[in-house]
Amino acid sequence: MEQIVNLLINGLATGMLIFLLAAGLTLIFGLMDVLNFAHGGFFAWGAYSGIWFYGVTGQYVLAILFAMFVGLVLGALTEKLIIKPVYGNHIQQILITLGFMLVLSELLKVIWGPNQLPAHAPEWLSGSWLIGDIIIIKYRVFIIVVGLIAFFTIHFILKKTRIGLIVRAGVMNKEMVEAMGIHIQKIFMLVFMVGASLAALSGLLLAPYSGVIYAEMGMDFAILAFIVVVIGGMGSFTGSLLAAILVGLSGSFMAYYVSELSIAVNMLLMILVLIFRPQGLFYGKG
């Protein structure tokens, strides 16, 4: 029983990290039709900048806000300088964002060195709770809580505010949104910045979870995020949460019971979705 609970919490925590990375990716693709392979770079920059800030100030919560701010700034610069010139051309988008991803990784090495860096959770998030026979690691619960807060905040904005309605409408028909007098380019920029910020948050949350950070960490997780976006449905925010939980849990349980298949199971899920429901499980569900 305790093992199952642990696997469950582990899977949910991993799922939340992937969700935070995939959420931006799915909105960016759904709204802007942009394949952003540099998204993992924001993730890695979030981890490095946040851990650096935490090291300097000792304030983990402030470090989270700082990492998100770095994500916002990087997102704004990337949209303006890298993405804007290649709107509407997927091949150019893949090439330029992959190239930019490498640049972001190399810049991390230039600033913080080529070696892996250690990352630790703050004291108040270290250790575990003992409930009966079950050991629950505090930091994993923290990741789940932060992921849920991020989900409900953005879900509220998407469902209840005019700007959220515009984003959802833009995912469905951006030309019509523009024809209604809305400056869709500004909305693109905003969504891109928020997406980058969520990726940076995810990167920082992962750092103490894995114990080390390294410049290429973004690419490893970005692949999982792309799988989640395909399973959840391009442009579906709720879909990306549910798909991320599915991927997180299946990865966690498979790693314990059939470890050889732990990575393959996610690919298998994606292939099944592509065959039987290519638009994704929750396409259009918001």
Binding site: L165, N173, M176, A179, M180, G284
Partner: peptide, 20 residues
């Protein structure tokens, strides 16, 4: 503008269309 294909947002409610 009312386009030929109506340009409706299929997953938004009528109320949301008015709001937006």
């Amino acid at each position: 503008y009312v386009p030929e294909d109506q340009g409706i947002f299929p997953y938004l409610t009528v109320e949301e269309h008015f709001k937006i």
